[in-house]
Simulated assay, not measured.
Amino acid sequence: MSQIDTFIQSARRTLQIEAESVAALQQQLDQNFSRACELALNCRGRVIVTGMGKSGHIGKKIAATLASTGTPSFYVHPGEASHGDMGMITSDDVVVALSNSGSTAEVVTLLPLLKRLGSPLISITGKPDSTLSQAADANLDVSVKTEACPLGLAPTSSTTAALAIGDALAIALLEARGFSAEDFAFSHPGGALGRKLLLKVKDLMHSGDRLPVVDQQTSLSDTLLEISRQGLGMSAVIDEQKRLVGVFTDGDLRRTLDLQLDLKQTPISQVMTRQAQTTTPESLAAEALHLMEEKKINGLIVIDDNQHPVGALNMHDLLRAGVL
């Protein structure tokens, strides 16, 4: 067997062991998980996550995931907590402590202080009978049969299991809070994700003189001139009360040409699409994108509460804004 094949075989073995460890967590869930969710959900302060070494690294990620999904949270190093950072924890907070052995000295040292403070404690351990587990108000069992490390020394399966249970906790709380995509956006204002979640249709739509619109008696030829002038590949069609009654797009034009109609004599109402896909100014741009993809169209008419067209949006606008 070549060295390359050996590398791949090793990777597959590691992934298999870790996948089995995560899958086993489903059977290890019990009322302790529900209790942990209740404690975090009813927390009046912050969820403070702590852990030493590799558990600390996992704890930092759990804290970050909680904070970005509606549960205010931050990480406190257990060693630093014994030298002043304990002041960062209040009786209104809930503490989540990670230790695979459940006996990590720096974490166990904090237990009497947390009890005196009155902060509820959730433990994430691989030893349900450990000191940390027994001291907790709710213990999440993340014990694994074996580490992926062939020496059984480097935390691998155990840290993966702890990370997975942290994600499970965060998502359960997200769902319980009714946390929305817009709420999520406020925690992620930067980069492509922020653009996708924060931008609204009103920020991108063409409006005013840039809005292609004709009344339903306008000839097909004049409608084509309006579409060409605005360059959006479509035009809204309105009635006497300026309400949207249809849309005419490049796709409609291709179908119309097959009918060999008189472009100057045919009113647009005869060939327009009456069931126009629409959105609103306050809708998220990401929602508009989803609608376009679902309906397999390249543009939307934006309407107000009275069915009046107030804007138009196409796929190129979303592409330029980085939403697509």
Rank of each mutant, 00 (worst) to 15 (best):
2 S>H: 00
6 T>D: 02
9 Q>E: 07
15 L>G: 06
16 Q>H: 04
17 I>K: 05
20 E>P: 12
21 S>E: 06
25 L>H: 11
26 Q>I: 13
26 Q>V: 11
27 Q>P: 12
32 N>T: 03
33 F>Y: 08
34 S>Y: 09
34 S>Q: 15
40 A>T: 04
52 M>I: 13
54 K>H: 11
58 I>R: 12
60 K>I: 06
63 A>C: 13
63 A>F: 04
66 L>K: 14
73 S>E: 06
79 G>R: 10
83 H>V: 10
86 M>Q: 12
87 G>W: 01
89 I>R: 08
92 D>A: 10
96 V>W: 00
105 A>I: 05
113 L>Y: 13
117 L>M: 02
122 I>Y: 01
123 S>Q: 03
126 G>R: 14
127 K>I: 05
129 D>E: 08
129 D>R: 07
137 D>R: 05
138 A>P: 15
140 L>I: 09
145 K>D: 15
150 P>V: 13
151 L>N: 15
154 A>P: 03
161 A>C: 13
162 A>P: 12
163 L>G: 09
173 L>W: 01
174 L>C: 14
180 S>E: 10
181 A>P: 10
181 A>K: 11
184 F>P: 15
184 F>G: 15
187 S>C: 15
188 H>I: 09
192 A>C: 07
194 G>R: 13
196 K>M: 13
197 L>H: 13
201 V>Q: 12
202 K>Y: 07
205 M>V: 02
206 H>M: 07
210 R>E: 03
210 R>T: 04
212 P>N: 07
214 V>F: 00
220 L>Q: 01
225 L>R: 06
229 R>F: 02
232 L>K: 01
233 G>R: 06
235 S>G: 01
242 K>G: 06
244 L>F: 03
244 L>G: 04
250 D>F: 04
256 T>Q: 09
262 D>R: 09
264 K>W: 06
266 T>Y: 01
268 I>T: 00
268 I>E: 00
269 S>I: 06
275 Q>C: 14
276 A>F: 00
280 T>A: 06
282 E>A: 14
288 A>H: 03
291 L>F: 00
293 E>R: 07
294 E>A: 08
294 E>M: 03
295 K>N: 02
297 I>H: 07
308 H>C: 04
313 L>G: 11
313 L>T: 07
314 N>T: 00
315 M>Q: 05
321 A>T: 09
321 A>L: 11
323 V>N: 14
